[in-house]
Design a protein around this nucleic acid. Structure first.
Lengths: 248, 248
DNA sequence: TAAAAATATTGACTTTCATGAACTATCCTT
DNA sequence: AAGGATAGTTCATGAAAGTCAATATTTTTA
């Protein structure tokens, strides 16, 4: 495990126009000529096996990456060797936007399962973006969404109890699955409990305990990696309710 | 307190070229012609008194804002009326980058003291950015930095103890003052203890107790709003050390 | 400048969750 | 299919930080 070199594209659809993600990552209205230019810039669907790294922290930054299939985990390693999980990326989501202003990647990215990933060389993208205003606009939007997302995460982590954090994580995963037109009630958990805990600032034991509690409450079930959400509204209530209860 | 309309520009320097911030917010190498275009887009230095709002959550989004002088706090209000502080902005820093992909502002912004703020209408900026590649590049950089910043904040808030969070906040404030060529050891705290606590996910009482502890340890002093940092290296050590101690 | 209001500090008590240890289940490998 | 390795769960305990309550200080207003 841990190869950096991946097999070359086996992509059935090897351009953005025919991508099965249907513009989830590049939902821009561009002419076919512009789309051709975009395809010229974006390297389609390199495949990574579980444990393969897309990039390492401190590698020279050149490109962002769009996840086409599978799932990717990003993490940093501190001086003392501690791993800190910084994000999970599902199909249609874009990696390394936080490294755009750096000359090196600020985190490692590793495939959690066999995954396919499109490469977006930033220099070329910037060139193209100044010619196609809608592409520039789209990238501003993407980055702004990313800012909002991590800001919300920060608030969530600073304010919420372990229970609320975990519930919120599953609500988010459910939403992201729905966005991909998959079931928001049943899906495979791409990451280990330890990764979840690390990401949410919780001990693995706490994650376990809470999953058991959620099951007893009839909210959701995780058997191994198979997630079943029985009561999505109930889960959402866990996320927000606590705050109200404090004042009730 | 709480006027939205601010007095008109009293700016001594009413263009970016002569701004006393010296390209802290727009550090781009542009020709004088381009600079003229930029000045055409950016509304210089509207003044807001303490308590005045620059914008409110759910107002129609039109512009980002660069802080020229003073200090701004952003916060959200939840359904149950709870206030959540989401950021503090000092001169040279840019507000509302997280709202770029929305049609409404995602937070309120209020002046913590008499402050001057430049307005950057996003639509015009995007138009200009597609003509001036270095401006586009600069905005990508700015937004990427913002992503990295809030991601780091999220990790900090999820991993670190109360003590580490507060120390880290003061180290950050010190750095931001240094960036502005002010003393990193002595400055005025722009926000109340309650705001600090709210932002860091701590009770006000905890903030107080820790400030007392830091003073006893000879690390720093806060008398009212006047901050004196006696041992910056010591403060930095507080931020990182705990992690090592856990494993030592 | 004094009174009132808003902020900040300190202390006692309680809750939450991390820690460490022990145990169980699941996944790979041969 | 057996065995080891990895991953997940459960339990007892203690430290960290929140809450409530009282007091002190600073700032604002009249």
């Amino acid at each position: 495990m841990g190869q950096r070199i991946a097999s070359t594209a086996t992509a059935l659809s090897n351009d953005c126009a025919h991508c099965n993600l249907g513009k989830l990552c590049m939902p821009i209205a561009v002419s076919s000529e512009e789309l051709e230019q975009l395809n010229d810039v974006i390297q389609q669907g390199r495949v990574f096996d579980r444990g393969d790294h897309i990039f390492y922290q401190d590698d020279a930054f050149t490109s962002c990456f769009a996840v086409k299939s599978g799932s990717i985990k990003t993490y940093t390693v501190s001086e003392d060797g501690e791993e800190q999980v910084t994000g999970f990326y599902l199909p249609g989501e874009i990696l390394a936007l936080d490294s755009v202003s750096m000359d090196r990647y600020t985190s490692c990215a590793v495939a959690l399962e066999r995954s396919s990933v499109c490469e977006i060389p930033l220099e070329k993208l910037e060139q193209l973006a100044s010619v196609i205003p809608s592409l520039q606009h789209h990238f501003f939007q993407l980055m702004s969404q990313e800012i909002r997302g991590s800001r919300e995460l920060a608030v969530m982590l600073s304010r919420n109890s372990a229970e609320e954090r975990l519930a919120s994580m599953f609500v988010a995963l459910s939403k992201r699955n729905e966005r991909r037109h998959l079931s928001p009630y049943q899906f495979r958990l791409p990451m280990a409990r330890a990764d979840l805990g690390n990401y949410l600032g919780l001990a693995v034991e706490t994650v376990s305990r809470l999953l058991t509690r959620f099951a007893k409450q009839g909210l959701m079930d995780v058997r191994g990696r198979e997630v079943t959400i029985h009561d999505l509204e109930g889960l959402k209530a866990v996320v927000t309710h606590q705050t109200e209860c404090r004042h009730a």
